[in-house]
Design a protein around this nucleic acid. Structure first.
Lengths: 230, 230
DNA sequence: GGTGGTCATTGATATATATCAATGTTTTAT
DNA sequence: ATAAAACATTGATATATATCAATGACCACC
């Protein structure tokens, strides 16, 4: 199970959020007091769809997937890496999670009492402004996602997914990625079998090399073309 | 073409946003100075996907549709009625519209210089907080939409759409709605022909009555059931 | 007051995508 | 180390949904 500790010093924490630079020492100490650190193991759930929002979640270390659960299938919205807050919009909105977050590698999450956190933003306009920008950017990302799902078909969507991992998550043309084929499919909004099939197609077409969960993109421009065409 | 005027008095305007109550007279006057009123006729475009964001948009009067344009088909995200801001998240995000907004009835839009507006939020934490809440709520709505599109099939999605108009837009079990069948389909993410077919099915099943663009819901509970089942 | 144009409806057909099934491979747990 | 479980792959089939086609109804506009 997840192990819980208390922060020793948020101020000197090597994993601290860059947003903390917008707060003074007093407020950072208050955060520390209102914070617990939870160490999640790979596969453990950090927050669960349809439950109450009680904390602001900051991913200090690790990688998680954020996804919408459905009756028959899930939709993975994004992969979040360390140094980011998870789902700020739920703090200012309905206060019910409309998604689930699960660790895809061992992760360290700072959980800050949500009432305290929201009050803190009210006292610190610059901090709030930054958060508003983050929420807005995240909203725009979901717009892109909904648009892609609506407009593109399988090959285009899988191209999107490969590019997302290459450009946004691993920032490299070759990477060993952490998702199973099923998760890859859930990210691309398609069945697992079709994700596998299209990966094979792309490999046979000389666009990528795959070996297990290792992917190397040989023709990134062609992949971008495929993403555009849809 | 759209007719442009200057506001006479935002303070005494009967259509003014409730958010203005969070600002003092000085700031409301500043808004007035930085604002032009544009009167759009039905069918005219208020802001266009992929263009720069230069103004905050407030819908004082009328009704508009907000949609994502695609190569072959559009996806209508929501119908916005008077008294709401349109797309606040683009002001704090990329500054490029990732959607298009078009009037579906004659509309009056207050366009406030975006740099001024953003600065104003920085000076007024309560105002900013309210806006952040609005953006967050809107984000949660898009989450719901993307989830529905991903999980449900045609009949479930059309049930969602009818319920949306009944519960959110017209707040009644019978209404003459303003969208064409094509737009109804674009809202439900399906082809126009299938939207028509399912409307006919629902009529034959005694769930609704339709006559042109008039709809009366006979069995709202059944419709909700269909929405749930997907 | 006709007339061109979008809108609406229905049936037939094509296509994209999911599901089912069989089999081999890799993890994970004991 | 070995069994069990989850994962990956491929082909065959079923199904949901879009597209095409034909026709009638309803509007806006000279």
């Amino acid at each position: 199970m997840a192990r819980i500790t208390k922060p020793e010093s948020c101020m000197r924490c090597p994993y601290k959020s860059e947003y903390l630079s917008l707060l003074d020492a007093k407020d950072i100490n208050l955060i520390q007091e209102n914070c617990i650190i939870v160490h999640f193991r790979k596969g453990e759930t950090i927050c669960k769809q349809n439950t109450d929002v009680t904390h602001a979640l900051y991913l200090a270390k690790g990688t998680v997937k954020k996804y919408i659960e459905g009756k028959s299938k899930n939709l993975i919205l994004k992969i979040i890496s360390s140094g980011k807050y998870i789902g700020l919009q739920t703090l200012f909105g309905t206060l019910i999670y409309n998604y689930t977050v699960t660790a895809i590698e061992d992760s360290m999450v700072c959980m800050i009492n949500s009432n305290f956190f929201v009050e803190l933003t009210k006292q610190n306009p610059e901090f709030l402004f930054k958060i508003t920008q983050t929420i807005s950017t995240s909203t725009n990302y979901v717009y892109k996602k909904i648009s892609d799902i609506n407009q593109k078909q399988l090959r285009g969507r899988l191209a999107d997914t490969i590019l997302y991992f290459s450009e946004t998550v691993y920032k490299s043309n070759e990477f060993e990625f952490k998702l199973t084929r099923r998760e890859l499919a859930e990210f691309s909004s398609m069945s697992m079998e079709n994700a596998v099939r299209i990966l094979t197609e792309y490999r046979k077409e000389g666009i990528i090399i795959t070996k297990g969960r290792y992917i190397k993109i040989l023709q990134p421009d062609l992949l971008r073309k495929l993403s555009e065409i849809g």
